[in-house]
Design a protein around this nucleic acid. Structure first.
Lengths: 218, 218
DNA sequence: GAATGTATGTTGAATTTTCAACAAAAGGAA
DNA sequence: TTCCTTTTGTTGAAAATTCAACATACATTC
């Protein structure tokens, strides 16, 4: 466990927890480090989980099987990220399986130990509960924005809605976006070539200026 | 306040709270009922709110202004629903304004009173915190699914992904959906006419059977 | 039953997006 | 520099979606 303390410390679930308290807290939460081989199923779709995971090393995929047995990868989990907290908290059946994409180590926490304060270290519990709420709420806010953007019907509208959010966020009509073209196309859920074309058009029409990941609304 | 107790009781934030405790609890949380005239801004975009709202009567819209001043309605709030809890918990600036669509009454709670347990009725706090987490997590799960559905590129794929979720959810290849055609089109973010056409095609191809809001995967 | 309104299905033309393929530009490594 | 790789831009044809308009079915009201 010690080896992974730096990763664990960076996880937003433990924001505001001091180094010396972290180890004690992990004991209090009965946190366990578990190894998974490549291709191993960490959690299985359809089960109800009371556990929250934090990826310590390796790489995980959230995968769904449809009615006909086709597999689709919904997202990846990065090192230091929590996963499954939304399903643990909502007490819903997992709509996805979590599969190790390579040999991975996972810190597994029982949500009940997080939610129910114990006699040892209640002050930490309060902090963790608050952090967990913030993680859920932040994901929620991000989803909210993404749905607003992608619900637009045309590539142009999606792009402009996205750029608008960025302009508002930075409080500036000039900004750099954190995506390259392909990533932006994936986020907007459009074709990369169509996106490039639309950016060119908007430039020619004098609506935006752009170079690489720099954008300016005119 | 008394008048609205039935509405408040049905709000998922107060799940598991007994009738007699509810009133006491609302006092403990310093809950306030506030009236808003039609068109009045309940909360303003760009501000940071520590408040969670529950709609008691009337109707609210979540509205966003873009960079050019165009208004778009992102969603509506129904009676008994909580709103803004995701932004209060994430401590983010509101990306939307909340506008009264008609004269409305709103129960306003300070998130800090929810999160920080007091000496009076801590057992309730625990329950409310748990409920709030569940609300956030459930919204999250619903967003998750919606994005999975709408990220598909064609009307056919969106529809089939959605129907698959329903089949999995009901654990049955026959089910009724809670949407009429226009609502389904809006959820899938496609054109109603195109959706109707695709449903017809899928029927002709023997992939699904359907009548009104009844669907069957074959 | 007639009249009305609402939901759904169908159609064809206009528009947009996707797809595949290639061109051009940028960045790194030898 | 040159070579190689990656990213981005461009293009035209094929496919899909949107849009507007109308047809049909169903339910409700008078």
């Amino acid at each position: 466990m010690k080896k992974y303390l730096p990763v664990i410390k960076k996880c937003p679930l433990f924001d505001g927890v001091s180094n010396e308290n972290l180890a004690r807290m992990l004991g209090c939460l009965k946190a366990k480090v578990v190894d998974f081989d490549k291709k191993y199923t960490v959690f299985r779709e359809g089960t109800v989980q009371k556990h929250v995971g934090i990826l310590l090393s390796g790489s995980l995929h959230l995968v769904r099987m449809d009615y006909y047995g086709n597999r689709s990868i919904l997202s990846g989990v990065e090192i230091g990220e929590t996963f499954l907290e939304e399903f643990a908290c909502s007490e819903a059946e997992l709509p996805v399986s979590v599969i190790a994409d390579e040999p991975s180590q996972v810190l597994i926490l029982d949500l009940r130990h997080i939610l129910h304060t114990c006699s040892n270290c209640c002050s930490f519990h309060q902090q963790i509960i608050f952090n967990l709420m913030k993680i859920l709420a932040t994901k929620n806010t991000a989803f909210y924005q993404k749905i607003d953007v992608t619900s637009k019907r045309s590539t142009r509208e999606k792009l402009l809605t996205y750029l608008n959010y960025q302009a508002k966020k930075t409080n500036n009509n000039e900004f750099n976006i954190p995506f390259d073209r392909q990533e932006l196309a994936d986020y907007l859920e459009v074709e990369r070539s169509g996106l490039s074309m639309e950016i060119s058009k908007l430039k020619n029409e004098g609506i935006i200026d752009s170079y690489k990941n720099y954008f300016k609304l005119l």
